[in-house]
Amino acid sequence: MSASPLDPAVFAELQAATGADFAAELAATFLEEAPGMIAQLKQAAAAGDGDGFRRAAHSLKSNANTFGATALAALARQMELSGLGGPAPDLAALDREYTRADAALRGLLDG
Protein backbone atom coordinates (compact mmCIF):
# COMPACT_ATOMS: atom_id res chain seq x y z
CA MET A 1 0.00 0.00 0.00
CA SER A 2 2.94 2.33 -0.42
CA ALA A 3 2.01 3.26 -3.99
CA SER A 4 0.77 6.83 -4.55
CA PRO A 5 -2.83 7.07 -3.32
CA LEU A 6 -3.91 9.13 -6.30
CA ASP A 7 -3.07 8.88 -10.00
CA PRO A 8 -2.81 12.57 -11.00
CA ALA A 9 -3.30 11.69 -14.68
CA VAL A 10 -6.82 10.38 -13.99
CA PHE A 11 -7.84 13.53 -12.15
CA ALA A 12 -6.29 15.72 -14.86
CA GLU A 13 -8.33 13.81 -17.44
CA LEU A 14 -11.49 14.35 -15.42
CA GLN A 15 -10.72 18.07 -15.26
CA ALA A 16 -10.10 18.22 -18.99
CA ALA A 17 -13.30 16.34 -19.83
CA THR A 18 -15.71 18.07 -17.44
CA GLY A 19 -14.05 21.40 -16.56
CA ALA A 20 -11.83 22.25 -13.58
CA ASP A 21 -14.64 23.80 -11.54
CA PHE A 22 -16.94 20.86 -12.02
CA ALA A 23 -14.17 18.35 -11.23
CA ALA A 24 -13.44 20.22 -7.99
CA GLU A 25 -17.14 20.22 -7.01
CA LEU A 26 -17.39 16.54 -7.83
CA ALA A 27 -14.34 15.73 -5.71
CA ALA A 28 -15.83 17.74 -2.84
CA THR A 29 -19.07 15.75 -3.20
CA PHE A 30 -17.07 12.53 -3.07
CA LEU A 31 -15.29 13.66 0.10
CA GLU A 32 -18.70 14.38 1.64
CA GLU A 33 -20.25 11.09 0.55
CA ALA A 34 -17.40 8.63 1.03
CA PRO A 35 -17.37 8.57 4.88
CA GLY A 36 -21.07 7.63 4.72
CA MET A 37 -20.34 4.82 2.25
CA ILE A 38 -17.57 3.49 4.49
CA ALA A 39 -19.89 3.68 7.50
CA GLN A 40 -22.55 1.74 5.55
CA LEU A 41 -19.98 -0.85 4.58
CA LYS A 42 -18.91 -1.31 8.21
CA GLN A 43 -22.51 -1.49 9.40
CA ALA A 44 -23.31 -4.10 6.79
CA ALA A 45 -20.23 -6.10 7.80
CA ALA A 46 -21.24 -5.94 11.47
CA ALA A 47 -24.83 -6.97 10.67
CA GLY A 48 -23.74 -9.77 8.32
CA ASP A 49 -25.63 -8.05 5.46
CA GLY A 50 -23.75 -9.47 2.46
CA ASP A 51 -25.75 -7.57 -0.18
CA GLY A 52 -25.38 -4.22 1.57
CA PHE A 53 -21.66 -4.86 2.07
CA ARG A 54 -21.13 -5.72 -1.59
CA ARG A 55 -23.13 -2.69 -2.76
CA ALA A 56 -21.25 -0.24 -0.52
CA ALA A 57 -17.90 -1.69 -1.63
CA HIS A 58 -19.04 -1.45 -5.26
CA SER A 59 -20.02 2.22 -4.92
CA LEU A 60 -16.76 3.09 -3.22
CA LYS A 61 -14.77 1.27 -5.92
CA SER A 62 -16.65 3.04 -8.68
CA ASN A 63 -16.06 6.52 -7.20
CA ALA A 64 -12.44 5.85 -6.26
CA ASN A 65 -11.79 4.90 -9.91
CA THR A 66 -13.37 8.16 -11.07
CA PHE A 67 -10.72 10.20 -9.22
CA GLY A 68 -7.81 7.85 -9.81
CA ALA A 69 -7.64 6.65 -6.20
CA THR A 70 -6.38 3.32 -7.50
CA ALA A 71 -5.22 1.75 -4.24
CA LEU A 72 -8.54 2.54 -2.55
CA ALA A 73 -10.41 1.22 -5.59
CA ALA A 74 -8.39 -2.00 -5.54
CA LEU A 75 -9.14 -2.58 -1.87
CA ALA A 76 -12.87 -1.86 -2.35
CA ARG A 77 -12.98 -4.16 -5.38
CA GLN A 78 -11.39 -6.95 -3.38
CA MET A 79 -14.10 -6.51 -0.72
CA GLU A 80 -16.85 -6.44 -3.35
CA LEU A 81 -15.58 -9.70 -4.85
CA SER A 82 -14.99 -11.63 -1.63
CA GLY A 83 -18.06 -10.27 0.17
CA LEU A 84 -18.69 -11.43 3.71
CA GLY A 85 -18.40 -15.14 2.95
CA GLY A 86 -14.68 -15.56 3.63
CA PRO A 87 -12.21 -14.18 6.14
CA ALA A 88 -13.14 -10.94 7.91
CA PRO A 89 -12.53 -7.88 5.66
CA ASP A 90 -9.62 -5.64 6.63
CA LEU A 91 -11.66 -2.57 7.55
CA ALA A 92 -8.67 -0.87 9.17
CA ALA A 93 -6.78 -1.05 5.86
CA LEU A 94 -9.76 0.53 4.14
CA ASP A 95 -9.76 3.40 6.64
CA ARG A 96 -6.02 3.91 6.10
CA GLU A 97 -6.36 3.95 2.31
CA TYR A 98 -9.30 6.31 2.43
CA THR A 99 -7.42 8.72 4.72
CA ARG A 100 -4.52 8.75 2.24
CA ALA A 101 -6.83 9.28 -0.76
CA ASP A 102 -8.74 12.00 1.09
CA ALA A 103 -5.53 13.89 1.89
CA ALA A 104 -4.17 13.52 -1.63
CA LEU A 105 -7.44 14.72 -3.20
CA ARG A 106 -7.65 17.71 -0.84
CA GLY A 107 -4.04 18.47 -1.74
CA LEU A 108 -4.96 18.55 -5.43
CA LEU A 109 -7.99 20.75 -4.77
CA ASP A 110 -6.01 23.24 -2.69
CA GLY A 111 -3.08 23.18 -5.10
Partner: peptide, 16 residues
Protein backbone atom coordinates in the same frame (compact mmCIF):
# COMPACT_ATOMS: atom_id res chain seq x y z
CA UNK B 1 -27.78 5.55 -10.35
CA UNK B 2 -27.87 5.27 -6.56
CA UNK B 3 -24.50 6.97 -6.19
CA UNK B 4 -24.50 10.77 -6.08
CA UNK B 5 -21.01 11.24 -7.56
CA UNK B 6 -21.93 8.97 -10.47
CA UNK B 7 -25.21 10.78 -11.06
CA UNK B 8 -23.54 14.19 -11.11
CA UNK B 9 -20.71 13.03 -13.36
CA UNK B 10 -22.97 11.28 -15.87
CA UNK B 11 -25.36 14.24 -15.97
CA UNK B 12 -22.42 16.55 -16.64
CA UNK B 13 -21.12 14.31 -19.43
CA UNK B 14 -24.53 14.01 -21.02
CA UNK B 15 -25.10 17.78 -20.85
CA UNK B 16 -21.67 18.52 -22.29
Amino acid sequence: DDNKVNRLLLARNVEL
